[in-house]
């Protein structure tokens, strides 16, 4: 990254005609984007061969700000859209950048099956515990007892544990950081991008406008301070211990890093190298 006095060093990877972005003051999505950009720069990838696919929601807007081939698709369908791109052109490095509601709720099935197939995608899941774009409704990740506009008496549904879901579905790389662990997050994104297969990086991110306001948790900076004081780095922690309780300690770290053949590898090994597909046509 060449730094200059008159230009922000990340400008080459941003659509500067769309900055300032729509994210609220104190939101952690912008911070996650800087980590992603730094990771891309450090990896020295061919930026023409990197695609970003987003769904709908606050994090869904990432596709509109990153100066790469970027696709802002329908709600929940970022992963299958990315699957299509990856299988259509396996040369491309495809990154899914979306939120917890998009990936875990409406897109949950796609998340599970892309992990099972081990499609070579990097999923960056920004988890702000809430549906923020629509005004702060309860999400599949909202911790128990937390208030949202649609859980006005406190949330009583058990939230999803994203790393555990990813691990059990078959992801090969799973990490969780907060938006404050910016350098560790960058390193995890680098590792995830290099890892062949379905890799998931969950980013716990402050939502200053909806989640913290309705729960009286202060501004974005107060949420960051909370992360600072309450996050505990435990690498390789069994993922069943990674539930997040309301305003309790958040375990972060790198939990899963394992090898499984990717969809493309298996396809090539089975159908091309092993020639299982010979003379099986119906007519």
């Amino acid at each position: 990254m060449i730094k200059k006095e008159d230009h922000h060093p990340m400008e080459s990877l941003l659509r500067m005609d769309r900055i300032p972005h729509i994210w609220c003051p104190g939101c952690g999505i912008g911070t996650t984007v800087t980590a992603f950009i730094v990771a891309l720069e450090k990896l020295k990838l061919d930026f023409n061969k990197v695609c970003v696919v987003s769904g709908i929601g606050c994090t869904g807007r990432v596709a509109g700000y990153i100066n790469l081939d970027s696709f802002h698709t329908t709600h929940g369908r970022a992963i299958p859209f990315a699957t299509g791109i990856k299988l259509g052109n396996p040369e491309l490095k495809v990154v899914v950048f979306s939120g917890d509601g998009d990936l875990i709720s409406i897109g949950g099935n796609h998340f599970i099956h892309a992990a099972r197939r081990n499609i070579d995608l990097t999923v960056i899941c920004v988890n702000n515990f809430i549906y923020a774009m629509t005004g702060g409704q309860v999400a599949p990740t909202t911790p128990l007892t937390a208030y949202t506009t649609t859980s006005p008496y406190g949330n009583f549904e058990l939230p999803s544990n994203v790393p555990q879901l990813a691990e059990s579905a078959g992801a090969v790389y799973v990490a969780r950081w907060t938006a404050l662990h910016i350098r560790r997050l960058t390193n995890s994104i680098i590792e995830a991008l290099q890892k062949p297969g379905f890799s998931v990086v969950e980013v716990i991110s402050p939502c200053a406008m909806y989640y913290s306001r309705i729960n009286r948790l202060g501004d974005g900076i107060d949420m960051m301070k909370f992360y600072h004081e309450n996050s505990v780095i435990k690498h390789n922690e069994p993922t069943e211990n990674l539930d997040i309780d309301y305003q309790k300690e958040i375990i972060v770290g790198k939990f899963i890093n394992r090898e499984r053949p990717t969809f493309t590898d298996s396809y090539n090994d089975w159908l091309v190298t092993e020639k299982k597909a010979q003379s099986k046509s119906m007519i």
Binding site: H8, P9, G30, T31
Partner: peptide, 14 residues
């Protein structure tokens, strides 16, 4: 660190 933490691409150091 300021450059990486800034969500608005507004600050950097050289």
């Amino acid at each position: 660190l300021c450059e990486m933490l800034c969500p608005d691409f507004a600050i950097w150091s050289t």
